[in-house]
């Protein structure tokens, strides 16, 4: 098994807000290897987007890393100076956003921007940069790359824009591609095509891909390993097949159970997860999921749960999960 390209070690991050701080990430550890697709799943407020932003060092001015490290090929990027961090972005780690419109400048053509994104390549003539851009657009499945080069972002459909955004992210051959809800803004048929594209790209480039999404279908279709997040913590980590067929954490089980896509025929009611997320400005002392958990005991409410390993490459943050 190869060394991880990117690893997050015991990362804690909080946002300073008026009158206190919100603990958005608490002791998060995970890693992604070359050629692997890691899924980060969870509902809104679970911290998955904060984690993605922290990985590419874009967590915002009011974010503060209180502990932990983010290592790219072993080097802690949080210890680098600003200039060195900036050089990593785009070149070593690239990001694809939910709304590809925000990834492009609306007043420049797609081609001009794809050429601009290569500003790091000193000494490469403009003509070659254009050729690389064109080539990358063709590789992401845009049938007429020359036409797309001359278009403005708003002149492309949502699906074409997302393809162009993926092309932009891959231009510098990054070691890690982070995609935050890459298909959420798209229709079903476009979503299927983008999933297909990401699979092909993984096979072609062998880069590590991190997919952040709330959509379990996308996780199941695309990922090799999955980290499920709840209230700023990774509550379960497992290979994709084991996660869907042998989930150990009660939250993972509930999440999978209440997805209507699992249910073949109309039932009167869907299983739901009652209750609300805990207040992250004052996290509960015990397990964060205890208040909504069906099997919680007194110990769960008072003692932080241990991380148990029910199998190779697996981890569950739960008192009750059998090891």
């Amino acid at each position: 098994m190869s060394e991880p390209v990117l690893s997050v070690e015991n990362l804690s991050l909080r946002y300073r807000v008026a009158g206190g701080a919100v603990a958005a990430l608490r002791n998060v550890s995970l890693s992604v290897r070359q050629g692997e697709v890691l899924g980060i799943a969870g509902e809104s407020g679970c911290g998955k987007s904060s984690l993605a932003a922290a990985m590419i060092d874009l967590a915002g001015a009011n974010a503060e890393v209180t502990a932990g490290a983010i290592r790219l090929r072993g080097q802690d990027i949080l210890r680098l100076d600003q200039a060195a961090r900036r050089r990593l972005r785009g070149r070593e780690i690239a990001m694809v956003f939910q709304d590809p419109m925000t990834a492009f400048n609306p007043v420049l053509t797609v081609g001009a921007q794809l050429v601009d994104f290569q500003f790091n390549l000193d000494g490469v003539p403009g003509r070659e940069k254009r050729a690389r851009a064109r080539d990358m657009l063709a590789r992401v499945g845009l049938s007429d790359p020359d036409l797309v080069m001359g278009r403005y972002p708003h002149e492309l459909s949502g699906g074409m824009r997302q393809r162009a955004a993926i092309a932009a992210a891959l231009l510098m051959r990054p070691a890690v591609l982070i995609a935050d809800e890459p298909t959420t803004a798209l229709d079903v048929t476009m979503e299927a095509q983008i999933i297909h594209l990401l699979r092909e790209l993984r096979a072609q480039y062998g880069c590590a891909i991190v997919i952040v999404t709330h959509h379990l279908g996308v996780i199941a279709e695309l990922c090799d390993r999955v980290a499920v997040m709840y209230a700023g913590e990774v509550v379960e980590e497992a290979p994709v097949d084991e996660l869907f067929h042998d989930p150990r954490h009660p939250y993972t089980r509930a999440l999978i159970a209440c997805d209507p896509a699992r249910i073949g025929k109309a039932t009167g009611r869907l299983p739901a997860i009652g209750g609300r997320l805990p207040d992250l400005s004052d996290p509960p002392p015990g397990c964060a999921f205890a208040a909504r958990c069906g099997i919680a005991t007194d110990r769960c409410r008072t003692v932080p749960p241990p991380r148990v390993a029910p199998g190779a490459d697996r981890g569950v943050l739960c008192h009750e999960a059998a090891p």
Binding site: S157, T189, A192, I219, F244, H245, A261
Partner: peptide, 19 residues
């Protein structure tokens, strides 16, 4: 085209092309 929340039911072909 609907993604199935089950990795054992992954489709390998692309159901629909174009927009």
């Amino acid at each position: 085209a609907e993604p199935k929340p089950d990795p054992r039911q992954r489709r390998t072909d692309l159901a629909i092309r174009g927009e």
